[in-house]
Every structure is written in C-alpha cells, then in structure tokens.
Simulated scan of single mutants.
Amino acid sequence: MKDNGGSGGAGRKQGAASPCAACKLLRRRCSQECVFAPYFPADEPHKFASVHKVFGASNVNKMLQELPEHHRGDAVSSMVYEANARIRDPVYGCVGAISSLQQQIDVLQAQLALSQAEVVHMRMRQYSTSPVNHSPENHSPPSPPDSNHFWYEHGG
C-alpha cells in the first residue's frame, strides 16, 4: 500500500473502479493487494473511519497482516464493534455495554423469579380455597375408572 496520491483503483480486486473506504480516507492508491479492501468497501466509509479513529490505520494494517485470511473478517467485525463502542463510551467501550446488559439480565431474572413465585402462590391459594378439595369424599384417593363401564356407555 504505497501512497501515490492517486485514487485509481482499476487494478483492484474484482475490477472495482473506486478505492476502498480505507484508501479513500487515507488518500492512497488502492492496489489489488490492499489488505483493507475486502473488509472496508467504498460504500461503507463509516466503518473504516471509526476503526481508524480508535486504532489507527497502521495498527489495523499490522493486525490484519498477522492474521490468517479466514480470521480477518471476524477481526474487522470486532474492531468495528469496539471502535463504535469506544466512540460512544471512551472510558469503558464495549465492556461498559456488556456490563449494562448484564445488569439488565440480573434485573429481569429477579423479576422473572418474583413472577414465578407469585404464580406458585396464586395456585396454592386457589388449591386451598377450592370447594372440591374440602368435600369429605375427596379425602380418599380416587379409584381408577372402570374400563368396562366406559366401553358400554360409548359404544365400545
């Protein structure tokens, strides 16, 4: 990625005429070997802008060069996520977002446990106040149904 001052991208991958977002922002010629081109397309300039602002183009270039190609896409996704989180929260970044989500999970789990306890309490109250449960004939276990009786009544 030599800086030749031009923005010609005729030799780039897939024959694209415009430079990738990284080369355009850095005002470089986007070559066919450009490490940024597959991950920072020209139509998504905000992705590289935030990554460049937080990590710097040189560091991103080094990170991508050190990774096998099959891991680079995931690395770029992570860098974009972290960069956007750092721009929103410069101190905690994505850790702040994760912490906030964990607190929401804790609150929701407590609410769920309370709701489940209320359901059990309501069922117990319903069971204990049901008139069927207080009748004398319900104190003995129910007898199994007579299968012959069923068949005679239902035409079996």
Rank of each mutant, 00 (worst) to 15 (best):
residue 47 K to N: 10
residue 119 V to R: 13
residue 59 N to Y: 04
residue 96 G to D: 04
residue 4 N to A: 09
residue 78 S to M: 11
residue 135 S to D: 06
residue 127 Y to V: 07
residue 90 P to R: 06
residue 107 V to I: 11
residue 100 S to M: 04
residue 50 S to A: 15
residue 48 F to Q: 02
residue 139 H to W: 03
residue 116 Q to E: 15
residue 53 K to E: 14
residue 52 H to L: 09
residue 129 T to R: 07
residue 47 K to F: 02
residue 100 S to W: 00
residue 94 C to F: 00
residue 42 A to Q: 11
residue 73 G to Q: 12
residue 118 E to F: 02
residue 46 H to D: 14
residue 110 A to G: 09
residue 2 K to T: 14
residue 91 V to F: 02
residue 5 G to E: 04
residue 140 S to I: 12
residue 89 D to G: 01
residue 153 E to L: 15
residue 52 H to M: 09
residue 15 G to I: 06
residue 121 H to G: 03
residue 93 G to M: 06
residue 117 A to C: 01
residue 155 G to L: 05
residue 144 P to T: 14
residue 95 V to Y: 03
residue 108 L to A: 14
residue 134 H to N: 05
residue 128 S to M: 11
residue 153 E to H: 07
residue 15 G to D: 08
residue 149 H to D: 14
residue 3 D to H: 07
residue 65 Q to A: 15
residue 96 G to F: 01
residue 52 H to D: 13
residue 16 A to Q: 09
residue 127 Y to A: 14
residue 20 C to A: 04
residue 125 R to F: 04
residue 86 R to E: 04
residue 112 L to H: 03
residue 46 H to A: 15
residue 115 S to V: 07
residue 147 S to M: 15
residue 123 R to T: 06
residue 56 G to N: 07
residue 102 Q to F: 00
residue 133 N to T: 13
residue 144 P to H: 10
residue 137 E to N: 10
residue 117 A to Q: 14
residue 137 E to A: 10
residue 78 S to N: 12
residue 113 A to V: 04
residue 64 L to I: 07
residue 41 P to W: 03
residue 125 R to Q: 14
residue 154 H to T: 12
residue 106 D to K: 07
residue 126 Q to T: 12
residue 68 P to Y: 05
residue 144 P to G: 10
residue 110 A to D: 10
residue 66 E to G: 12
residue 139 H to T: 12
residue 151 W to S: 13
residue 113 A to S: 10
residue 73 G to N: 10
residue 83 A to E: 03
residue 86 R to L: 09
residue 114 L to M: 10
residue 123 R to M: 11
residue 98 I to T: 08
residue 6 G to T: 14
residue 71 H to M: 14
residue 65 Q to P: 00
residue 65 Q to S: 13
residue 138 N to W: 02
residue 74 D to Y: 04
residue 153 E to I: 12
residue 76 V to N: 02
residue 138 N to G: 05
residue 3 D to I: 09
residue 12 R to K: 09
residue 89 D to M: 05
residue 36 F to H: 02
residue 75 A to Q: 08
residue 106 D to Q: 10
residue 132 V to I: 14
residue 35 V to E: 06
residue 145 P to W: 06
residue 37 A to F: 01
residue 41 P to L: 08
residue 114 L to F: 03
residue 32 Q to V: 05
residue 76 V to Y: 02
residue 25 L to T: 05
residue 91 V to K: 11
residue 103 Q to C: 03
residue 5 G to I: 07
residue 46 H to E: 15
residue 90 P to H: 04
residue 154 H to S: 09
residue 108 L to E: 06
residue 146 D to S: 15
residue 138 N to H: 11
residue 113 A to I: 09
residue 14 Q to R: 13
residue 76 V to T: 08
residue 121 H to S: 14
residue 106 D to P: 00
residue 139 H to C: 09
residue 110 A to N: 05
residue 115 S to A: 15
residue 94 C to W: 00
residue 15 G to Y: 02
residue 33 E to S: 10
residue 126 Q to H: 04
residue 29 R to A: 09
residue 55 F to M: 07
residue 27 R to V: 05
residue 53 K to W: 01
residue 109 Q to N: 11
residue 106 D to G: 01
residue 145 P to L: 15
residue 155 G to T: 06
residue 125 R to H: 09
residue 44 E to V: 08
residue 114 L to Y: 01
residue 34 C to Y: 00
residue 15 G to M: 03
residue 74 D to S: 13
residue 42 A to C: 05
residue 5 G to P: 00
